[in-house]
Design a protein around this nucleic acid. Structure first.
Length: 681
DNA sequence: CAAAACTGCCTTTTT
DNA sequence: GGCAGTTTTG
């Protein structure tokens, strides 16, 4: 191109290539901090500018946050909301297709999306049926195996065929029944939101052609996090022109445990022959000192697209690596330094992040931060949906929306206490099986005189039947919000909360949550006139609720106050002027479990450290303790192998820290020797 | 059927 | 050490 184009002048040569190469498969390897988002938004803007119809553009992300950001930045760049363009998460796209094609996959229209808790309860019952009394089977482990199979795009028959030992046969049998139960209850899980659309599209050539010709330009963000099923999904959508552009960084693939396959980004050229590759290596985020360490650490991974991040900034301070005696000293050191930064007054609390391998590590930091009245925000950790009262209320609504859903119904059948215990439930379940009806219907039958039940139980059953009958009527009348409140009221759910939490303070807090949830349905119904409850539940499950409607206390960026405390996983994609990476020890990073799981897991742990390092803009401090109390027991700790490996390269400023009140060397030594003794036996 | 005692676990978690 | 799920006991 001979004429300089002002639109492209804001980009470096590699970025420009990634933006302007619009035809055919393209892999953009975007190292940390190399302007990935800029490339994506410019690329979309460039397509539109060149006359591509917005409706033929599909941009896929993993999170709603990323989708939202992309939409906003494209809008800012082209000056208006590009109407008709699809910018969506994999799962939202899946749901959209599945809602349209549900019958083809054997589902009825208003299916529920069940969350992880529902999945585990369902699997618990499934396993009981398969193995009778054999206990000790962890439903979570089986679920993980099923999910892995689904993410590889393996159906129950595939798993059965490949099964070679008892465990694998069990997984295959569990998977088969689990899937059947889900379908009977008209429920899908998160994995199904990818899997089922693909099955639909494959089954029907005409439909699949429709999507393929519609989306002529596909863009995928964070491609390193794509799993096998998502890959198949993309394959279904890519048209004959193969205009697929994937952007990602194999070095930041940290969701392997969720089924992501680094292999997909490593083998993009194999999957899409003739693909062009553009590497973005110019880093606009971190100092050279930080990037030198990052490059050195990640170089230890054997299979990767070779990249070296180059800093566009100065050298900066050397990365500090601080040895401390124990976890108390670690907190002490970090907070002392945080205070020092804050006192220097140029630094706002929000520019400091303390990054952890596991959410549980946050506790000692939280305690001290609170004690010193340093404002902080904890990100990640226990989800809002893990709260008992939230799960209960949602279970009520799910049953109202989808009365065939036994999992949720079982959850609330005796909440509040109605005298329906395990024996009664077993009998109701027998009745349901015999009559081949959902549990709720069996309860109705029992209330009407079927089976052998004491009068008190028949009364309770009648109450439940009436409760949901009224709920159904209100839903049928198009009054989801009225139904939502009435159902909770009439079910006397308040009683359950009162009984469960005798302490008035927690009780009020829990009840507040319930009221907030009810209020959010009401607000939602107000804003989405004519929308049904299924849609509300879907938006909630997919985390698509508009900001002001989110009652889960998840602070968005603007609301975050104070120092950030978060896991390495939730830090991906973010950046902070000052970063503390704590607990960088063998057993934590790499995690003990990863060491047991082999090389691939260790490589992922290394990438996790790499992600942590590359979050830092100006200063980075790594800490590690000589001993740490874990699960109520003191254990000796060693500096992470990833740091040890590069220790000789003069990349680190090593330091030892011992606060006056912390363990002395003798204490640590004693701790260790008692530990060894206790282990020795 | 509910409360109390007991056991076993203990990473990360975009949707 | 702390939670949740399970089994035992009242």
């Amino acid at each position: 191109m001979a004429i300089a184009d002002p639109f492209l002048s804001a980009l470096n040569p590699a970025q420009r290539e990634a933006v302007t190469c619009t035809e055919g498969p393209l892999l953009v390897l975007a190292g940390a901090g190399t302007g990935k988002t800029r490339v994506i938004t410019y690329r979309i803007a460039n397509l539109l500018r060149r006359g591509v119809a917005p409706a033929s553009v599909l941009a896929v992300t993993f999170t709603n946050k990323a989708a939202r950001e992309m939409r906003e930045r494209v809008a800012a760049l082209v000056g208006s909301r590009p109407l008709g363009m699809t910018i969506s998460t994999f799962h939202s796209l899946g749901v959209r297709i599945l809602r349209a094609e549900a019958e083809r996959a054997g589902y009825r229209h208003g299916f529920n999306i069940c969350d992880e808790n529902d999945q585990v309860s369902l699997l618990r019952t499934v396993l009981r049926e398969i193995r009778g009394a054999v206990a000790g089977l962890d439903p979570r482990a089986v679920l993980a195996a099923i999910s892995r199979a689904k993410n590889r795009f393996d159906l129950p028959a595939d798993v059965l065929e490949a099964a070679s030992d008892d465990w694998e046969h069990l997984v295959a049998a569990g998977y088969e029944r689990y899937q059947t139960s889900l379908r009977d209850m008209n429920c899908v899980d998160f994995d199904d939101l990818i899997l089922l659309p693909v099955l639909c599209l494959r089954k029907d050539e005409a439909t699949s052609r429709r999507y393929r010709t519609r989306f002529r330009h596909i863009l995928v963000d964070e491609y390193q996090d794509t799993n096998g099923a998502q890959y198949q999904f993309l394959r279904c959508l890519v048209g004959p022109e193969r205009n697929i552009c994937v952007v990602g960084d194999d070095d930041q693939s940290i969701y392997g445990f969720r089924g992501a396959e680094v292999d997909k980004i490593l083998g993009f050229e194999r999957d899409f022959p003739g693909a062009r590759i553009v590497k973005l290596e110019e880093n606009y985020r971190s100092t050279a000192s930080i990037l030198d360490l990052a490059n050195a650490v990640i170089a230890g991974n054997p299979s990767r697209h070779h990249k070296v991040l180059r800093s566009t900034l100065g050298r900066g301070e050397k990365v500090r690596c601080v040895a401390v005696p124990d976890e108390h000293a670690e907190v002490e050191y970090v907070l002392r330094d945080v205070t020092r930064l804050l006192d220097s007054s140029r630094v706002s609390p929000r520019s400091i992040a303390i990054l952890l391998r596991a959410a549980a590590q946050a506790r000692p930091f939280e305690e001290k931060l609170r004690l010193r009245r340093i404002p902080y925000t904890l990100i990640g950790g226990q989800s809002y949906f893990d709260r008992k009262e939230v799960r209960d209320v949602l279970a009520y609504w799910k049953v109202a929306a989808n009365p065939t859903e036994d999992i949720s119904f079982l959850r609330i059948i005796n909440v509040p206490k109605r005298g329906i215990g395990s024996t009664a439930i077993r009998k109701l379940d027998d009745l349901a099986r015999e009559a081949k009806v959902p549990l709720l219907e069996a309860v109705g039958l029992a209330a009407g005189g079927a089976g052998d039940f004491p009068p008190a139980l028949r009364a309770a059953a009648g109450h439940i039947r009436d409760l949901f009958e009224r709920a159904r009527e209100r839903l049928a009348a198009g009054k989801p919000a009225r139904m939502a409140r009435a159902l909770i009221d009439e079910a006397c759910y308040r009683e359950a909360v009162d009984l469960l939490y005798p302490d008035p303070l927690t009780r009020d807090g829990r009840w507040r949550t319930v009221e907030d949830l009810v209020a959010s349905v009401e607000r939602w119904a107000e804003e989405n006139r004519g929308g049904d409850l299924v849609e509300f539940l879907e938006a909630l499950a997919l985390d698509e609720m508009p900001r002001e409607d989110r009652e889960d206390g998840k602070a968005n960026d603007a609301e975050r106050r104070g120092v950030l405390l978060m896991t390495l996983h939730s830090a991906k994609g973010l950046e902070f002027p000052h970063v503390f990476l704590v607990g960088v020890e063998e057993g934590t990073l790499p995690h003990k479990k990863a060491a047991e799981d082999g090389d691939a897991a260790i490589e992922e742990e290394r990438r996790l450290l790499y992600v942590g390092i590359t979050r830092a803009r100006e200063s980075l401090t790594i800490t590690h303790a000589a001993a740490r109390t874990l699960y109520g027991e003191a254990r000796p700790r060693q500096l992470s192998r990833f740091v040890q490996e590069v220790a000789r390269q003069d990349l680190l400023l090593e330091e030892a820290f011992r606060p006056a009140d912390a363990a002395t060397e003798a204490d640590v030594a004693e701790l260790l020797s008692t530990y060894r003794k206790s282990r020795g036996r």
